[in-house]
Amino acid sequence: MKQILSLFALAVAVFVAGCGNSDDNGGPATTELTLLATGTYGDDPLVMFERTYEYEDNMALQMQLLQTYLSDIALVYEEDGVEKEELLTDVALVSFGNVFTDEDAAEGVEVVKMEVPVRNYTGLKIGLGVSPVLNATIPPDYDLTHPLSQNYWEDASSYIFFKVEGNADLDADGQFQDKLTYHVGGDNNYSTVQFTGAIDLEKGTPKTLALNIDLQKILIKGDGTYWDFREGQFAHSTTSPAAVFMGENFPNAVRLETR
């Protein structure tokens, strides 16, 4: 009889799961967490097309695209003295290509929005680019709706981790006629960052975090070293100097804000 009842419970559970919408499955309490991405250029909002951003040595640029993959985004917490992770998503594609106004820029781009167990988290981990595990996959491994169904470099056997595209004025004549196309990929250009600090999630209180990406810091290092557009306006390989320069800088160009 006990066995029959157990099987009945399984049948009911499958039925309910198949039809969806179970509000209370007895799991841990959750609350809604939203992770946004915002783009800036120094202190200025990053908007596409008409905004001019001053650059080093009297150069300037106007942007058309900043796009990046983020991998293994996870909240960090401690349990019994052991650091554990609550994975939010294994990969997301973030594009600022449709950010045209300061309002768009302030609003940010949604990276992930989901119910997360309420806890006192101690930080957030993010991979900048496509993690090596996922970078070993190929688009046919995914369906059309998956972020990794696109942006693949067959010849480099890598996804394009991030793209920086725009036009530059290299000689301070007010004309933005010099094209910039930097595409960066390859395991060598992947990095991870961990933000440490209290992220307390309470039941019934939605929380929003914002990952800020500062384009200026991708292009200019803290010591003032900058990528000279005149030395290379394009990068299409995993090892080109511009790609490596920007890949190295990316971890220094992100910060996490709580809203």
Partner: peptide, 15 residues
Amino acid sequence: MIGAALLLFSLPQCT
């Protein structure tokens, strides 16, 4: 067996 029968019976109702 009964559970399996219930399982088979319940699934078509979802579609």
